[in-house]
Write a protein that binds this DNA or RNA. Structure first.
Lengths: 116, 116
DNA sequence: AATTGTAGTTACCTGTTAGTAACCAGAATA
DNA sequence: TATTCTGGTTACTAACAGGTAACTACAATT
């Protein structure tokens, strides 16, 4: 998922896009937010994601230092995921994207309004 | 490039990621910035992009209303691209990503410093 | 002895994205 | 007459992403 050519650029912006410039990582970061979540929860909540892709993305997020993984030595296994400081610092950006979209998105359906 | 499942979500954030959640569109938007640019310039400046991908992405950006395309009826052809209001409003987000990355990116090379 | 629960992993197969190189129009220039 | 210039398009191919379903470990429960 990560683009190595981008990540090896000498431009920090290009490198940033090389790591978070895809759909899954922002989605996962946004879903976790300030919470601590387990694998099964993420699998259930992140829209449209499959187990396989989820594990891969979680690994990448951990490698890049956005995510902390805490595995308890229990059976059945239990693993907690939470954002690192870097990951938390990314949340306001995702919130800005959300607001930007709400403000500028062209209406897909010309919604009828009951509200006058 | 756009993810239709995401774009049909009833969550605005998910829809936003469905359109700009990829590497090419942020890169192109960032390169254009507040300037007006021609196809050939973009082809030369956007890192690693091929003509084919560039045309495709420019079309998508136009469809989503981030980009304005102005084709002059000349030969040889001349086409200007510039960001729409929506596109311009996205620039601060890209700048925030840049700053976030500069602040939190783990050094790839353990840089020696001459600066004490 | 069989089932449940969790967090993955694996194999197999399909679909999408990307790269490359050749090609186009049609006026202006050499 | 051949070449140049620009903004694409097209065909072919390689690489990658993603979906599905089956499988693992091992303790606790039924």
């Amino acid at each position: 998922m990560r683009d190595d050519r981008f990540c090896q650029s000498n431009c920090p912006f290009t490198r940033a896009i090389g790591t978070i410039g895809n759909k899954w990582e922002p989605m996962i970061i946004n879903v976790i937010g300030t919470r601590t979540m387990r694998f099964g929860q993420l699998d259930a909540i992140v829209p449209h994601i499959s187990r396989k892709v989820l594990t891969g993305q979680l690994k990448e997020l951990e490698e890049v230092g956005l995510l902390e993984r805490l595995a308890y030595k229990e059976i059945p296994p239990k693993v907690d995921y939470k954002l690192s400081e870097k990951g938390l610092a990314f949340l306001p950006i995702l919130e800005a994207i959300n607001e930007w979209n709400i403000k500028y998105e062209v209406a897909v359906m010309p919604e009828e309004t009951d509200l006058g």
